[in-house]
């Protein structure tokens, strides 16, 4: 907060020197362009150009069977809708993303609250809970597919503590498969979310919490009334990033259900891969365009929020 104020105070000075912030750089900025150029080229050719082109390819008929691209408006989307793919994939992706986001942030926030203080035991717990972040999402999928197998340890545990013999196929039923795969995705990332929350909690001034304790606020009250509201930036960041990330999920599905049972876990990006594999490049682009739209609709509020907090250039 203090840095923001400081920058605002300095601003008029900058305005008097629009060419740059320092006396040493007068109007010659060629070197600045030279330093930024390689990065700019890479980002523009391999990110921006494809990104913009996608908004075009989504509306053309383009398959591997003919070399001509014809503008067909919304035909790709209509076609995908007629075969029952579009709406299903959007719904499934949305449910997947929300599930992953809730699990990731629930676990991350709980762990961060428990592990906020720096100490020897907490450091051990922190490094243990971080290990899933390091392994590939594919590996995470294989491991959990085994844990949740009909005869795996999860069902064995349930059979031991509950009456009856459990051989539930977690990945074999539509809804449970979708929720399970999303949770595996969340498992892999929750260690990272935890660190962001710890950083957020560490930023809360100690005096505020002490004052609340003096006023008689208990641990719960301090968490709900002080920590959580002051944690808002970290929450917004984590929630948005986890949602946006899960919109483009694919890896865990590939190593667990491969889109099934039936099409229960056919997320948008999984469908993109299938369409692409069948050389339907136009419809693949259309599906990927839908991912982009979902991301923008979620990310724009976040970006505007981030910018409000950003130090002005």
């Amino acid at each position: 907060m203090t840095t923001n104020k400081a920058t605002i105070a300095v601003r008029p000075l900058e305005k008097r020197r629009p060419a740059g912030r320092s006396l040493m750089y007068p109007r010659r900025r060629a070197y600045q362009y030279a330093f930024a150029l390689p990065a700019i080229c890479l980002v523009f050719v391999f990110f921006v150009l494809p990104f913009v082109a996608n908004a075009f390819f989504a509306f053309v008929r383009w398959t591997g069977y003919s070399s001509t691209l014809t503008w067909t408006g919304l035909d790709n989307f209509r076609l995908l809708d007629q075969v029952g793919l579009l709406r299903h994939a959007i719904t499934v992706t949305a449910i997947y993303a929300v599930t992953a986001m809730v699990v990731q942030n629930g676990v991350g926030l709980a762990l961060a609250t428990a592990l906020q203080r720096t100490g020897r035991v907490n450091s051990v717990f922190r490094s243990v809970f971080f290990v899933p972040v390091l392994i590939s999402p594919l590996a995470a999928g294989y491991i959990w597919a085994a844990v949740l197998d009909d005869h795996g340890p999860a069902n064995a545990f349930l059979s031991a503590v509950l009456p009856g013999d459990f051989h539930y196929a977690w990945l074999g039923h539509d809804t449970s498969a979708l929720l399970t795969v999303a949770s595996i995705d969340a498992w892999k990332l929750s260690g990272l979310v935890t660190l962001v929350y710890i950083a957020g909690l560490n930023r809360i001034p100690e005096q505020v919490l002490q004052a609340a304790t003096l006023d008689g606020a208990g641990a719960w009250r301090r968490f709900w009334s002080i920590k959580l509201p002051l944690l808002a930036p970290a929450v917004t960041f984590n929630v948005t990033v986890s949602l946006v990330g899960a919109f483009s999920a694919l890896d865990v599905v590939f190593s667990t259900t491969a889109g099934g049972p039936g099409d229960a876990t056919t997320l948008l990006n999984v469908a993109v891969y299938t369409q692409y594999g069948q050389s339907f490049f136009g419809t693949a682009s259309a599906l990927s365009f839908v991912v982009t739209l979902m991301v923008i609709l979620t990310a724009v509020p976040m970006m505007s929020w981030l910018r409000r907090r950003e130090v002005p250039m």
């Binding site: 980002v43 050719v45 391999f46 990110f47 921006v48 150009l49 494809p50 990104f51 082109a53 996608n54 390819f57 948005t240 990033v241 946006v244 919109f247 483009s248 993109v272 692409y276 490049f281 693949a284 682009s285 990927s288 365009f289 991912v291 982009t292 991301v295 923008i296 990310a299 976040m302 970006m303």
Partner: peptide, 16 residues
């Protein structure tokens, strides 16, 4: 900065 959150478009990437 935007490229961090926006999903890369894979089909046009292959085209490029």
């Amino acid at each position: 900065a935007l490229s961090i959150v926006l999903p890369p478009a894979i089909v046009p990437t292959i085209y490029v």
